[in-house]
Simulated assay, not measured.
Amino acid sequence: MNPNVIFLNSFLDVSEETFEKLTSISTFRKIEKGVQIDKSGEIPSKIYLLISGIMRAYLSSETGKEFNKNFFMPFSFVGSLTALIKKRPSRLTYETLTECKVYELNFDDIIKFCKEDILISNLYSKVLERIFIRYEERQLEFISMDATERYLKLRKKIPGIDGLIPQYHIASYLSITPVQLSRIRKKIDKN
């Protein structure tokens, strides 16, 4: 079975007809490493289904310092949802950290289909629920786990992350410095 159908069925049983409708409004793209698919200050119009590779969402300060908000692994929906819904400029930039394969969808087309097809509307609702749950889990990590625990959880979530993503990106995601991350790694390696 098509892995994309399997992924969508993890939210809700998706008929072949519904899958075909979604396919009709999507474009497959291969994106090189280091490409910004959505930029801070711009109004996005697309949402992406990440099929392979790793992406990140980050915020840039006025001084140019970057703060990683999220990493995205295959079979994730990627995009500035708040900016898409409100039709306002995004505060975040979305960038490929490795070569990525995605399905690109126009957000307005999805919303149009939601109004016409209850199955697509239900799928959209389930996707939003999953996004909210992951957001809440991430917030709870920050208030209930120390940096070492967050790092170990991230390594479990993204096996081999240390070889895939530069240390400063990982440290930023964990809200620690690269030096602190280096110390945590040394301590883990000793144990």
Rank of each mutant, 00 (worst) to 15 (best):
V179I: 14
S175C: 12
I184C: 08
K87P: 05
G79Y: 03
Y94P: 02
E62H: 07
Y135K: 13
L140Q: 13
N191T: 08
M55L: 12
I176A: 06
D38I: 12
K86W: 03
N2K: 12
K46L: 10
K190D: 04
F113R: 11
E20H: 06
L81F: 13
E136I: 15
D108N: 14
I170A: 02
A57T: 11
K30H: 02
L22M: 14
Y135A: 13
R88M: 09
N191P: 00
I120C: 09
D117H: 07
N122G: 04
F75D: 01
I54D: 09
V35A: 01
E141G: 00
K156D: 10
S24L: 07
I165G: 00
Y103H: 10
C100A: 14
S52K: 15
T63G: 04
N2D: 15
R155V: 14
N9A: 01
D117L: 01
Y124G: 00
P74S: 02
S76D: 10
F71I: 04
R29K: 14
R155F: 00
I188Y: 08
I131F: 11
I111Q: 12
P89I: 07
E17F: 02
K190W: 00
V35S: 07
P178F: 04
L152Y: 00
T63I: 05
P89W: 11
K69R: 10
M73W: 01
I131D: 01
R88V: 09
R130C: 04
G64F: 09
F113V: 12
E141K: 10
F7N: 10
V5G: 00
R88E: 14
F142R: 15
L92T: 01
T93D: 06
F71S: 07
L181M: 13
K126A: 09
I31V: 14
S80P: 06
L59G: 02
L12C: 02
